[in-house]
Nucleic acid binder design. Structure first.
Lengths: 209, 209
DNA sequence: ACCTCCTGTCACCAACCGGTGACATAAACC
DNA sequence: GGTTTATGTCACCGGTTGGTGACAGGAGGT
């Protein structure tokens, strides 16, 4: 009868380990309990069932880059420039952060393949963060009345996310080598061009003349 | 001792049915044989093992919209306009075709979640088709020297694909309602703006003045 | 008629899945 | 000290997975 909280922590940690090492498919009562060095019946006692465990993991996890991280990573040390630069920096920060976090990738993949389980909690959490981010971007973008910033952000971040997930099992996508830094450079540059083309300084320069 | 080819066909058809009705997760020797009304040992005799069956299904399937379909659906009845209009039309055709084909979605999802199985064959097939399409687009686009058309196409089609897969398990993404036609209208319009902003007629109009 | 070969049927395997009931044991309270 | 209560252990359940060996039966060749 040592430490209930300790055991709970070990179980939750095991979920994170499996997620980042074995992937979404490795999640299961038997595997989690084995990895945590704990009897699986404790999972049922402390979390109800497997979905309950995943729900708790998803709601309490720090597996996802916070909006503050992204903004910080995005702004760097120079003063806030135009909205297009901010958007580009945010998206770059997003994709770089995501490329480093295998558990975030697995979570994303899990949300894609099946609803119910851990999907809802983590999806809701990220949805809220993302919506905040978009809202902040809309506020700082004068062209928000002209273009649908939310839809643009959704489409571009979705594209980056898909290519990231895709890179896990495939080496190329439409001829782009998404397993190399060179390929990701092309992707980032294309993203930058797209953003600038729509809300970028091209048009601002035009207004200046 | 009736018809070996008939049995093979029934098995392959069962794979397709499961894919479109139960999803990628429903694929399995037992399930396939049950649905085909056939003993599962025949799967091993005729296809070696499960990966072999999936490989054969993926290589022989017509589950994927051909490039001709897309171009046809894209061009409609007016003469080929600018490259940006063609690109927009192609992407719209792609996403509409994909939204209708649940088996294509499942295949895509399967490629994302695990390599090896049916992923390689179908991925290679689509990769080839997609690369052809991009190549055709590059040829018809005078701005191909200025912008990386392949990277743009990859990013945008990836974004559309992700949102499509996402809509299967989630209702919203970054505040966009991806379960409604209204939300998809916003996505399509955003995509159109992005393409036009980079290789669009905005700039061409500018040149006319 | 006989023998061979191929198609199809059936029972079975070990390993896994999520989940449960019975029981030991150690701490906490009286 | 004795009793209660919560923590942890163990064996087991039915059902699923991918995969295999033995055998029936019908078609074709001789």
């Amino acid at each position: 009868m040592r430490d209930k909280e300790e055991t709970r922590k070990k179980i939750l940690e095991a979920v994170g380990e499996i997620l980042s090492e074995e992937g979404f498919g490795g999640i299961g009562v038997n595997n989690v309990s084995r990895r945590a060095g704990v009897d699986k019946v404790l999972i049922y006692r402390y979390f109800g069932d497997l979905p309950g465990l995943l729900r708790e993991f998803a709601s309490g996890g720090d597996y996802w880059p916070s909006m503050e991280d992204l903004v910080e990573k995005a702004e760097g040390d120079n003063r806030p420039p135009g909205a297009s630069e901010l958007a580009v920096a945010l998206l770059k920060g997003y994709i770089r952060e995501l490329r480093d976090s295998t558990s975030a990738q697995e979570l994303l993949l899990g949300e894609l393949v099946s609803r119910n389980e851990l999907s809802e909690a983590s999806a809701r959490k990220r949805e809220r963060q993302g919506a905040d981010l978009i809202e902040a971007l809309v506020r700082s973008a004068p062209e928000a009345e002209r273009v649908d910033v939310a839809a643009l952000g959704a489409l571009l971040s979705a594209g980056l996310t898909f290519l990231m997930l895709r890179a896990r099992t495939s080496e190329a996508y439409l001829g782009i080598d998404i397993s190399s830094e060179e390929g990701w450079g092309r992707i980032e540059r294309a993203m930058e061009e797209l953003v600038r083309g729509v809300m970028g300084d091209d048009k601002l320069e035009g207004f200046q003349y």
